[in-house]
Design a protein around this nucleic acid. Structure first.
Length: 578
RNA sequence: GGCUAGGUAGCUCAGCUGGUUAGAGCACGUGACUCAUAAUCACGGGGUCGGGGGUUCGAGUCCCCCCCUCGCCA
């Protein structure tokens, strides 16, 4: 296979807390699977993620924690990075949208868009808190819901009756910051991205992506055409925490004290984080520009984005609008996404996961119960691709026990222990292959090709199914040849079978690494081999380790989840996170 | 209310541009094996493909109507 260059981004998680398993399976985990696979195939990969740090919820979360927002974000970023390492997410860089790199890039994009006439200044009346000395956008304002009478409704939505609100609808509005009711409506100016004028460009671009998942294109086209069609979007807010909207060289004035809306600067952080990666590695700008600038070497890059369906509008409309607008200026040319893989939601035991309500299993809790591989396998093999899917503890227990412990783990266990007891801890010598081995090689060759094509296509569940079938083939082989019986009459033949099975174990480690990297590492360590090269020929791969090669019988790879444990977890996570 | 996606064996899901007796995993039953984490392997039972019309030689697969679930928007 030819060497290719793959830029891969995961939707960037918001900073206001630890994410739950639904967030993980929607973007970070499948993007990691893809990145690991592409690396294993020998391609050059740039895998980027970051924390999305700006905006109202971050300020509120910091205030609740009693910390300056800068400190809060720095600490939470480190927390999220640590958990990402725990899940073995193999980002080349895990950046921060509050970085200097992102600030510079965001202001640059805004300036070019402004110079292109794609940004409009508009005035509107918003609540201003005299006591707080600031405007109160979005959720900074609370009051009584005009619909249901709930007294703590927020400016954008009532949490009680879920009705969407405009801040001016609220009865007895007050500041969420100070509780002050000393509010007045004041005229304030904001910048709007003139997406309407880019509508046809965006439509043409989306229509050209015939291979995208319907989930992606249907959401995009709906926003493009629904109602009055794509609307111009306000890209500034009256906030402290964000990228300043007034800066040197800006083609507008009077935006002091305002920042760019989080959804304007967040996707730009994909680029920012790649620049941060270059900085962190002591490389110059050309190192990251060759991934993003089609006028500087990125023309042969394949760019794939992963995200949950709630993020699709921003990645199919807003961010592309920004790039199309900037590229239209004719100067610097930026790489646009080639493929958007989107996911539905993962539900939790009959309801939804909820960060704000603390419902479900959160990433840190998951790792405190079981190692990453267990979660990775279950989540990826049940990824919500065609529709929403559901996490239940029973399903988790049976899947993990059956697939990982019984099928893969036990295969490793039975062959290593058999070899140790009959031949010692080295690949035994003698014997030859026959029809049964040819049949196994034929089956594995077919299945490997299918596995590869599912991985290329980002068909996560199908790839998992195929991988499992490959594991099963090993057990079938052992069962049909029965080296423990053959050994009694023909030890040399049993040795050939055992040697093949131990090589098969190595093959499994390589193929399984994108899904379960820790187990893959343990298997290779047990086999005392470093060679992870992807198999191009099954027959050759099954003779890779020669007779005489020493190994160590590994510990149990995957322990089983007992019924009592499952019941205990079920109970522990049934309520609300404390 | 508008729109998206779904509704296929007890459970979780595959079924591409319509074509032989509708598939897989789990669960269940029977058998084989005993190397192995009471693991593995084989065989089997089980579905009027949400409901009703229609197009067609032929529909889970296309068209229309209705019901239900989920989500987005209003």
């Amino acid at each position: 296979m030819d060497m290719a260059r793959h830029l891969i981004t995961s939707a960037i998680p918001y900073i206001n807390g630890i994410k739950h398993l639904g967030n993980l399976v929607g973007s970070q985990l499948p993007s990691d699977l893809f990145a690991r696979y592409m690396r294993a195939r020998g391609h050059e990969v740039m895998f980027i993620c970051a924390t999305d740090e700006h905006g109202t919820p971050a300020e509120l979360a910091a205030a609740k924690a009693g910390k300056p927002v800068e400190d809060y974000c720095r600490e939470m970023h480190e927390t999220q990075a640590e958990i990402a390492r725990g899940f073995r997410l193999s980002f080349d860089h895990f950046g921060r949208s509050s970085s200097d790199r992102n600030t510079v890039l965001t202001q640059y994009f805004a300036r070019v868009l402004g110079e292109q006439g794609l940004i409009e200044e508009k005035s509107e009346k918003l609540f201003y808190s005299v006591d707080d000395g600031r405007f109160l956008p979005d959720r900074y304002i609370e009051g009584t819901c005009p619909n249901c009478g709930y007294e703590k409704a927020r400016g954008d939505q009532c949490e009680n009756c879920t009705k969407q609100l405009d801040p001016t609808d609220l009865i007895n509005p007050r500041s969420a910051v100070s509780g002050s009711t000393n509010l007045e409506l004041r005229e304030t100016k904001h910048l709007f991205l003139r997406q309407k004028t880019l509508r046809e460009d965006i439509r043409t671009w989306i229509k050209s992506k015939a291979d995208w998942p319907v989930l992606t294109t249907s959401i995009a086209l709906k926003w493009l055409d629904d109602g009055d069609g794509l609307q111009d979007r306000g890209i500034t807010r009256d906030l402290y925490w964000g990228v300043p909207a007034q800066f040197e060289g800006a083609p507008w004035t009077g935006m002091e004290g305002k920042v760019f809306y989080v959804w304007f600067d967040a996707p730009i952080e994909y680029i920012g984080a790649t620049a941060e990666w270059a900085d962190a590695n002591g490389l110059d700008d050309s190192a990251w520009q060759r991934w993003w600038r089609t006028d500087k070497g990125a023309e042969d890059v394949t760019y794939t984005e992963f995200m949950g369906k709630d993020n699709v509008p921003f990645h199919t409309l807003s961010f592309p609008a920004t790039l199309i607008g900037v590229n239209r200026a004719g100067g610097e040319q930026w790489k646009m996404v080639d493929y958007i893989k989107s996911f539905n939601y993962l539900n939790y035991d009959g309801g939804q996961f909820s960060t704000s309500q603390g419902r479900g299993v959160f990433m840190d809790q998951a790792l405190s119960i079981l190692p990453a591989d267990y979660w990775r396998w279950w989540l990826l093999s049940h990824a919500p691709e065609s529709s929403d899917s559901e996490f239940t503890w029973e399903n988790f227990q049976t899947s993990v026990n059956k697939d990982l412990a019984d099928v893969l783990g036990n295969f490793v266990s039975r062959i290593t222990k058999f070899c140790r007891s009959k031949f010692g801890e080295a690949l035994p010598e003698g014997g030859s292959w026959g029809e049964r081995e040819d049949a196994l090689i034929a089956e594995l060759s077919t299945r490997l090709a299918a596995y590869e094509s599912f991985m290329e296509a980002k068909e996560v569940r199908k790839a998992a199914t195929e991988l499992r079938a490959i594991w099963v083939a090993g057990n079938e082989y052992l069962q049909s040849v029965g080296p423990w019986t053959v050994f009694k009459t023909d030890p040399a033949q049993a040795a050939a079978q055992t040697r093949l099975a131990l090589n098969l174990m190595r093959l499994y480690a390589i193929l399984s690494e994108p899904f379960i990297p820790d187990a893959a590492g343990l298997i290779l360590a047990a086999l005392k081999t470093e060679d992870r090269s992807w198999p191009t020929d099954i027959r050759a791969a099954l003779t890779h380790l020669p007779a005489g090669h020493a190994f160590e019988t590994p510990e149990v790879l995957f322990r089983k989840i007992a019924d009592e444990e499952r019941e205990e977890w079920q109970k522990r996570f049934s309520g609300v996170r404390s």
